[in-house]
Amino acid sequence: MTAVQFLQNFLNGISIGSVYAIFALGYTLVFSILGIINFAHGAVFTLGAYLTYSLAVGQFGIGGLFADLQLPFHFSFPFALLTGSILSGFAGVLVERCAFRPLRKRGADPLLALVSSLGVALVTVNVLQYLVGSEIYSFPSDVYGDIRPAFVLHFGEKLVVIRTVQIIIFSVCMVVLALLGYLIGWTRIGKALRAVAENAATASLLGINVDRFILYTFFLSGFLGGLAGSLVGTSFGIAGPYFGVSYGLKGLAVIVMGGLGSIPGAVLGGMVIGLAEAFVPSEYSAYKEAVAFAFLFAALLIRPQGLLGRSHIQKV
């Protein structure tokens, strides 16, 4: 591999890796507080992509209940992205209310939360299919305004092509990561969230309203999921209501890689898996989908606590 090729793969990798990172953070936030994996996260990802599409473009296809509908308004892309992600955040809150809270109040087996969240995911995805059909939706290239679609760097004979979308994705993710880091590390809300994650019973004794912070966590998780979905959707198009399933599963590989419940771990895991996929040689590109899962297995074998996770000693 030449240096130029390396640079191209590297740039592709950190762009998609940054999306994996913010998506996986949505899993991590919920896991660090509840110790449960929210299997509806992939569905929120899909929902976010469709919401942003609806707000930014608003032209529906030929299938589903919304067939041939054209929304009377449309927002500029940044505003649509923000609104779509915030609405996904509320969808996250709804997931908590429908799938997690009733079970928590009954003290049910955590395995059941897995099934109920899968149930919510199934409902979400199929309602989407009912509304918008199962065709491919893609964002028009002028959706970001009047900017060039790609930048080409010349290295003698060789070219490195960076799509503008990739730059947008990477910058948005970095800004969100910085804001999230600030929120969790340096604000009262963040302090309370960390306290709940450390020990919910103690936090509630200290006067923290645990249920409210669980809701905040699901809002953040949904926001990140919807944002990731929107960014992937604008880059590669929305390949039907089931397109979130594979990202949802890949996200699991990312959090295991990084260490379950570790926030820096999720970011690092996302980058590692994004880069690893980008460096798959083109003749094996059909196997790219399996790379993340191979990493998951390797993590289970070699370092089950993940790259940055703490290994726990079980106390009796």
Binding site: L112, V115, S116, V120, A121, L122, V123
Partner: peptide
Amino acid sequence: MNGLVLVVASI
């Protein structure tokens, strides 16, 4: 409906 059955049954 399938999804709803899952949610309701697990609760």
